[in-house]
Structures are given as C-alpha cells and as structure tokens.
Design a protein around this nucleic acid. Structure first.
Lengths: 207, 207
DNA sequence: TACTTACTTGAGGTCTCCCTCAAGTTCTGT
DNA sequence: ACAGAACTTGAGGGAGACCTCAAGTAAGTA
C-alpha cells in the first residue's frame, strides 16, 4: 500500500509538472493541451503521462489547493458580522478567484467533466455555502427564493462574463455582478414562477 | 459583375447546404464541423467548399434570417405601450431565440469571431435596442445606469446559462433572468462604481 | 445526339492533439 | 564503481478536422 518514495529526480519532475499545469490551466483553461504543460515543465510528454496517466489525475493534483482558497473565503463570509456583506464578499471573492484562474473558472462552471474527487470537494464547499445564504436570508437581506442551485447558475453566468471581458476590462464582471446582486435583495424581489434547478438536474449534465 | 444564374443542380445543392448548416449550427454551435454540414446536406465536402469557400461565407448565408427574427422582437418591444413590459419581452424573446439556436447563441455572445457583415447587423440591431432601453428609463422603470454595453454582458451571462441548462431544464434560464431583471428596476438600484464597457472594449476582443 | 462547360467527388495532404512503448539514461544501494 | 531498478525520452500511430485538386459526371445548348 505505502508506495515507496519517489526517486529524487522523479519527485522533482512531478513537482515541475504540477507547477506547469497550474500555470497553463490557469492561463488557457482546462482544455489546454497537455503537451504545452510538458513543454513548460521542461519535460517530455512521456514523463507527463508517466506521472499523471490521465488529464483528471492532473486536475486532481491541482485543485485541492485552489479549492482551499475558496474555503477560506467562505469561512470569512460566515464570520462576517453583517450577513449580507458576508454574502456579497463571498461571491465577489469567488468570482475574483475565477477571474484569476481560467482553469478554476472552467471547473466551477463545469465546462468540462471534472473528476469525481474535485466534484465532491465542490459539493462540500456548496453545503458550506448554504449557511452563508441562510444567514443572509434570516437577517432579512437576501430574498427567500434564492436557493443554492441559483448560485450555480450565477456561477455559469459570471464565468462567461469573466472569460469574455477579462482581457479587455478585468473588472467588468464586477459591474454585471452588481446588477445581479441588486436583484437578490429582499426588497427587490418579485415573484418568480420558474422553479430552481434540482440537485439531480445540476449533476446529471454529464454521463 | 452580374454572375450568370447557377445551374439547376448547383442551386439545389446550395440550398440543401444552407438548410443543413442552419440545422447543424443550431444544434451544435458555430464550431460544428463542416463535414457534418456536408454529410447532412447529402453532398460531398468538396461541394460545400465550392459554394462556401470559408466558414464565414456559411455564417453569412444563415444569419440574416435569424437576425430578422430578432428585429421583429425588437419592433414589438418598441410598440409595447408599457415600456418596462416591452423591455422585458425583448430580453425574454432574445434569450428564447438563443435557447432555440446554439449557433445564434454563439454569434450573439461572440464566442467566435463572426464575419463583418453579421457583426454589423448586430450593431444595427443594437442601436435599435437603445430606444427600448431609453423608453424604459424615461418612464422611470429601468435604472438609469443600465447602458447598452451592459446588455452585451447580460447576453454573455445568459448565453452560458442557456447552454449549460438547456438539455436538462430548458426553461431554467428564465429564472436566472428574473433575478437579474429584479436588479434592473429603478427602485432596486444601488450605485455601482465600475464603469460600463466602452464600445471599443466591446469590439476589440478580436484582432 | 453530341459537345462544352459547370459542377461534384472523395482520396489525400496538413495540422493539432491524443497516448504508447522500446530504447536509452540516471539514480541509488551495495 | 557497478548492477539493476527507476525513470525519461521522443518517434510514431491514431483520431478528427481542415482544405485542395485532378479526375469524373451531369446540365444546358445547338
């Protein structure tokens, strides 16, 4: 079970690959060619496949670190004495992360099927987030009919705004978000007759 | 200059290609393989290139019809006695079109560079739209700081929501839009400190 | 009916990315 | 210093899409 430790050069290469993957996916998104990752790591494509037999294995090596950043943002949001402010800070922090990292943007918007492990981490995070929403609702700030799946659709929405505008106006997504947030306040709410996505609908989009 | 008329079989093939392209791009988006278009038209790939030497030529053959539908929706919106209702009907009609046609969705969200002619048609449409917005603002319904470029970002946003949810919940985008619209009412408005995209920023995203 | 010209065909070259594996290289323990 | 295990290499085969062009077919005209 306990695999014997990697040889020194192998460990070095593995780390170079991880770093290169973080860079490349961050810049070009999750569909970046693996040969670019290998090239940037200064290693042959064979070595890449040696360490990470599949694309998913690379994703798994990268995402925990990113998702941890997200957790920190969520924690801060929950700790915020003002629930609405906490909620706003959370979504702004989330999207700022996405704006910095095309790969994370792709992953959160689920533009590509993502390995189970990463997916599960997102779900754990999401449950965490439920508390942020609930707190803001209980305080009368966030409209009652905004549910967790609606946050997922907001992520889809913003993910495109981010990718399309980032090169030309890196802050433009904040404006779009501001309009949206103004619609999420209790006093702005008008009844909506379309139900939220179900958990099943959210997860069934891939095989 | 006045090209002599096409031979009968050629005219038939050209039309079959147009129809197939409409179908294929509608289902699979603007990046659908041209060989699929040829296959569906029951014609060889050579013939396709014969009639439409570039992808853009195909787009140009297809979009005028679609954009005309959009114009009709805009006209109806302007004719609406209630400016806010007209505005809402316009965006709902717009996104309903996009939900029916992945290709149009791609084109309006400018997911791919689109030929100048199509682009220009969009711009003409957009100026038209300015009146819809202005009317709703003048009537005190639409917040003053919502500008034309903000509609472009809304299109980006919704285009992703549409593609991601259409297979699983074809109406889900309406819910997301409803939240957004609630943020566009005058009485929901809170000041926003990020400026709208400029015309230049909107158009400079491609070479 | 036969000829000319217009049109169609699809195999095949190119490109990009995927992934594999036999041969070569480098580390590590003795 | 050596043997052997661990690791790396990159050429190469495969898949999918792009686009071209020489050879073949069919429409229009006399």
């Amino acid at each position: 079970m306990t695999a014997r430790p990697l040889r020194a050069d192998a460990a070095r290469n593995r780390e170079k690959l991880r770093a290169a993957a973080t860079e490349v996916f961050g810049e070009r998104g999750l569909d970046a060619p693996l040969e670019e990752v290998a090239r940037r790591a200064g290693v042959s494509i064979g070595t890449l496949y040696n360490h990470f037999p599949t694309r998913d294995a690379l994703y798994e090596a990268i995402f925990p670190e990113r998702l941890a950043a997200l957790d920190r943002i969520a924690d801060a949001a929950i700790a915020d004495p003002d629930p609405w402010h906490g909620f706003v800070a959370f979504v702004e922090g989330l999207f700022a992360l996405q704006a910095q990292d095309r790969g994370l943007n792709d992953a959160l918007a689920q533009r590509f099927p993502v390995p189970a492990e990463v997916d599960e981490a997102c779900h754990r995070g999401f449950r965490h987030i439920d508390r942020i929403l609930q707190r803001a609702k209980d305080n009368g700030d966030l409209r009652e009919d905004f549910e967790l799946p609606d946050l997922a659709t907001l992520i889809w929405a913003m993910s495109r705004v981010i990718t399309e505008s980032m090169d030309v106006a890196p802050q433009a997504w904040r404006r779009c978000l501001a309009f949206f947030l103004d619609g999420l306040r209790t006093e702005a709410a008008h009844p909506i007759d379309v139900p939220a996505l179900t958990e099943g609908q959210l997860t069934s989009r891939f095989g």
